[in-house]
Simulated scan of single mutants.
Amino acid sequence: MSVYGNTKACGETQTSLTLGSVATSYTVVRHFSVHGEPQVIKENSHSWVVAWFADRASLGLPLHLNGGGNQIRALAHAGDIAETTVRSLVAPRAHNETINMGSGTPTSIRAVAEPVAEQYPGTRFMETPLPPGDPTGGYPATSRMESVRGWRPAITIEQGVVHYANWLASIETRFPHGCGPRASRHRPDLR
């Protein structure tokens, strides 16, 4: 367990103790590695790999495959996460449940880089050392999500990358010349 994992477990326990003691229905949802538009890069985040890779590839920069890109993530598209969250609010079987929300499919970082490279021809891969502390990964069990809501995520990583690349191209058109959400990525160093 990590501090991050411990704080999440504590929050789930407190929710159960607090709301359970006053007979208030609740559902705890655990989101795993969400990707999709309008997500922009987040410094030092291993979960935002689609945004990182698409941003770098769109600028003609190589995609860094730390440790060869063999780390496993449980990537789920924001549209699927939104739908399953709403379903959790109304599903009678979700009453007082804790549910993992993710694709349930183990996806390597390399398997994310490849469809990104297809969207940006000429993209190069650069194998780099695995940074200390970079999680090698895992993915959540999603059988409870599927049984409680009778639903599975529908957007594959390949489809999500296409959606993201199209969105990224559209914001470049709407915010030319280094303005808008990606401005800090285009500005020259002013030091």
Rank of each mutant, 00 (worst) to 15 (best):
R152D: 01
F175K: 08
N44T: 02
G69W: 08
G137L: 08
L61E: 12
A183C: 05
E172G: 07
V161Y: 06
D134S: 15
C10D: 12
F32V: 00
Y120A: 03
K8E: 05
G150P: 00
E118H: 07
S147D: 06
P135C: 09
R187D: 07
I157L: 04
E83C: 07
R110M: 07
S103K: 08
L89Y: 08
P132C: 02
K42Y: 05
C10T: 14
D134Q: 15
W48A: 12
P132N: 09
Q159R: 06
T98C: 00
L63P: 04
P115L: 07
R187S: 11
P38R: 06
S143C: 10
P38I: 01
A117S: 12
E97I: 00
A154Q: 15
R93F: 03
S143Q: 08
T105I: 10
A9D: 10
L130C: 13
N70R: 13
H64T: 04
W48L: 07
G137M: 11
W167A: 08
S108V: 03
H186Q: 11
S16V: 14
G69P: 00
T15H: 05
S108R: 14
G60Q: 07
V116A: 04
M1S: 12
T105N: 05
I81H: 02
V86W: 09
S58V: 06
Y164G: 01
G36E: 01
L130G: 11
A57C: 10
T98L: 02
L17I: 13
H31T: 03
G180V: 11
V90K: 01
A76K: 05
H35F: 12
K42Q: 11
F125G: 00
T18V: 15
L17Q: 14
Q14L: 11
G150L: 05
P121H: 06
P131I: 09
G178D: 09
P106G: 04
I155K: 06
H95N: 11
P106I: 08
L75M: 10
V162P: 00
T84L: 07
R191W: 15
P153V: 15
S45G: 00
G5V: 14
V3A: 14
G68D: 10
I109Y: 09
A91T: 09
A51E: 14
A94T: 05
A154H: 13
C10N: 13
G138S: 06
F53I: 13
L65P: 03
G133W: 11
Y120K: 09
R191N: 12
A9Y: 03
Y164I: 06
N6I: 13
Y4T: 12
T18I: 10
A169T: 09
R174F: 03
L17K: 14
L130H: 12
V49H: 02
A76E: 06
G104P: 01
H77C: 02
V112T: 00
A78M: 10
G20A: 09
I72V: 15
S47E: 07
P129C: 04
N66Y: 15
Q14E: 14
Y139D: 02
S16L: 14
P132F: 08
S184D: 11
P92H: 10
G137I: 07
T136I: 13
P38H: 05
T18S: 11
G122E: 05
R149H: 08
S33Y: 14
G102W: 02
Y139I: 07
R73Q: 04
A76W: 02
S33A: 14
G60K: 08
H177I: 04
A117W: 08
Y139F: 13
E158R: 11
S170K: 07
V162Q: 05
A111T: 02
S170L: 06
T7C: 02
Y164R: 03
G138L: 07
